[in-house]
């Protein structure tokens, strides 16, 4: 059974969750308040973090969950495509890393927020320089993005080094993301 079909069956048994009232307010106020560097898209009721929920991205998120680790919170959700996305947020509720794994890429223009422009520019330049059809390996001081895999099996991560909490080892966080 393909990964997408297995996840579809799990989703069918998931109870619908209700977003908090803050979400509606922010939906009316506009977007730009969630993603890498900002509040998480993935919000679960009762989890401490930034006040007010984040705008729900399209497509809608399934089976969201939040796990509190020692120094950060992992917010995880599954897209309808079967792709699993995780946002790693500091104690103040700011997302410092995003990981993904699944048959289709998540919309990185949403999940990377204001950092997507740098990512787009890097991939354009690499293509011009002869790196075509190859994994993305952006490793700059201000942003790290790795995008790997191939059709039906994409995986990758993005993080902002300056936003990683001082006591957190980003490599351990990313290793954990592969489970």
């Amino acid at each position: 059974m393909s990964a997408l079909m297995a996840r579809t069956q799990r989703v069918a048994h998931t109870l619908a969750r209700r977003w908090g009232p803050g979400l509606l307010w922010l939906a009316l106020a506009g977007d730009g308040l969630a993603a890498l560097g900002q509040a998480p898209f993935v919000q679960t009721p009762g989890v401490a973090g930034v006040s007010g929920a984040a705008l729900t991205p399209k497509p809608r998120l399934l089976a969201p969950s939040s796990v509190l680790k020692a120094r950060y919170t992992v917010h995880e959700a599954q897209l309808e495509t079967g792709t699993v996305v995780r946002e790693y947020a500091s104690a103040s509720g700011q997302v410092f890393a995003v990981t993904w794994r699944g048959p289709v890429l998540p919309d990185l223009s949403q999940w990377l927020g204001g950092y997507f422009g740098a990512f787009q520019q890097e991939t354009d330049q690499e293509r011009l320089a002869g790196r075509r059809g190859a994994p993305v390996n952006l490793a700059q001081v201000g942003l790290v993005v790795r995008s790997n895999g191939r059709m039906r099996n994409f995986f990758g991560h993005a993080y902002v080094p300056a936003l990683v909490p001082p006591t957190v080892n980003i490599n351990e966080v990313l290793q954990d993301a592969l489970q």
Binding site: M1, T8, T81, P103, R152
Partner: peptide, 27 residues
């Protein structure tokens, strides 16, 4: 960088069984 792509990968379709049952499949 080409006039097309001939995908000769290991699987028979680009998406597979998931796209036959999930509407928001991304393909």
């Amino acid at each position: 960088g080409a006039n097309g792509i001939l995908g000769l990968g290991l699987f028979q379709e680009d998406c597979g069984a998931g796209c036959a049952v999930v509407t928001g499949n991304g393909f």
